[in-house]
């Protein structure tokens, strides 16, 4: 009952061109049937994500562990609420990040859980920068 060969093949890595995403914008791509948010964060969002005290977070993780070094402006997260799997809405909630409409979890501009029933931060998918404007997810 594990995924069949075709399903696994369809889940192969995908490449995404970041050049068209302006600062403050974000796009949603699907990989393995999951929505992946790629956000081009503003200076303010980066600032907020880096300056928050780790001890105040339910799932402490520094912003540097959630983005690739030297690519601070790009946040890539799986847009699936860690509570019960709904899709949070970008640019909503009190933390300049994501808001899940199902049970009210709020994530900050680094995709970290700040408020609500979700137990963990939004997951970061495996990805790598091929060039400065191109990433491969998977």
């Amino acid at each position: 009952m594990n995924p069949d060969a075709a399903t696994i093949a369809a889940g192969a890595p995908i490449q995404v061109d970041l050049a068209p995403i302006a600062e403050g914008q974000d796009i949603k791509v699907f990989w393995r049937g999951k929505p992946i948010y790629i956000s081009h964060r503003t200076k303010k969002q980066i600032q907020e994500a880096q300056s928050v005290a780790l001890s105040s977070l339910p799932d402490p993780q520094p912003d540097s562990a959630r983005v690739k070094a030297g690519h601070d402006q790009w946040l890539v997260v799986i847009g699936i609420c860690t509570h019960l799997g709904c899709i949070p809405i970008a640019h909503e909630g009190n933390y300049d990040g994501f808001f899940c409409p199902c049970h009210g979890s709020q994530y900050d501009s680094s995709g970290r859980i700040r408020q609500g029933p979700a137990p963990a931060n939004l997951a970061v998918p495996p990805y790598a920068f091929l060039t400065d404007t191109k990433i491969q997810i998977g």
Binding site: M1, N2, P3, D4, T7, G11, R32, G33, K34
Partner: peptide, 8 residues
């Protein structure tokens, strides 16, 4: 994953 038979 067994329940889904896929990634979602």
């Amino acid at each position: 994953t067994l329940l889904w038979g896929g990634y979602s």
